[in-house]
């Protein structure tokens, strides 16, 4: 059984049907990417998995437990952690306080300190700014903090919603490099991206979502080579 199994998810915003039966799965150890155009339903998928939205139909099973309709903090407790779109840093708190909030549900001080140390090793620039108000960080630093903060929760599965959004190309390279390293160190990753090019390089497998439905899926390399994907998402003509 896969670590995360999403089956036939149907989600509405009022009368608007945002997801029309989305199914996907993530095996332990993988990097899986969910790519698609703006408004396709990527964030809606992650927000539903995290418990921020209630699905009207479908099933979400994580680590053997059906978690649809669980409140978000219970979902986090199972080890399913999301770094949301737009980073969602608490600008009114210090960088350090932001980081510590990632461990809100944990009490094992020594283990938290270790995970914090590990998270900061991925992002040395965050370490240099621990005492600063988080609102004063640059966009790239905020993204690093958002990922570091999620890591402090010690996720079994880390969901990243558009980590490259609005970042300079060089920073995008750095972020994706770290995503790869985090995965190598043992964390399973579900990566949502509009930057299909980069996402397909990092991921083992990929899903393509279009207007609330999965249109294609397969090994990342295979999708990257397919004509449809190249035309629609990789800017090839």
């Amino acid at each position: 059984m896969a670590l995360l199994e999403v089956e036939n998810l149907g989600v509405f915003y009022g009368a608007i049907e945002a997801l029309r039966g989305v199914s996907l799965c993530v095996e332990a150890g993988e990097v899986v990417t969910l790519i698609g155009a703006n408004g396709a339903g990527k964030s809606t998928t992650l927000r539903t998995i995290s418990g921020l939205l209630q699905p009207r139909s479908g099933k979400i099973v994580f680590d053997g437990r059906p978690i649809q309709n669980w409140p978000p903090h219970k979902v986090v407790e199972t080890g399913l952690v999301q770094a949301p779109e737009g980073r969602k840093i608490f600008s009114n708190l210090t960088v350090e306080e932001n980081l510590n909030l990632g461990a809100f549900l944990r009490n094992d001080k020594a283990a938290i300190a270790k995970d914090r140390e590990r998270a900061l090793e991925f992002f040395p620039r965050v370490r240099e700014r621990l005492a600063q108000q988080a609102g004063t960080l640059s966009g790239g630093e905020q993204q690093m903090l958002a990922i570091a903060r999620a890591l402090v929760a010690r996720p079994k599965l880390l969901m990243l919603d558009e980590p490259s959004l609005g970042l300079a190309p060089q920073l995008v390279q750095t972020i994706f490099q770290v995503i790869r390293e985090i995965n190598r160190a043992g964390t399973t990753i579900l990566l949502v991206e509009q930057n299909a090019n980069m996402a397909l390089q990092v991921a083992h497998r990929a899903y393509v979502i279009e207007v609330g439905k999965i249109r294609m899926e397969g090994p990342a390399a295979q999708l990257a080579a397919s004509d449809d994907v190249r035309k629609a998402y990789l800017g090839a003509h």
Partner: peptide, 24 residues
């Protein structure tokens, strides 16, 4: 920790929930 959570919730309720904070 509770106070930090209060300040976080007052800034962004949804993001707080994603940190595992029991917002209610």
């Amino acid at each position: 920790k509770i106070g930090t959570a209060m300040r976080a919730v007052s800034y962004d309720l949804e993001a707080s929930a994603l940190m595992g904070i029991p917002v209610d």
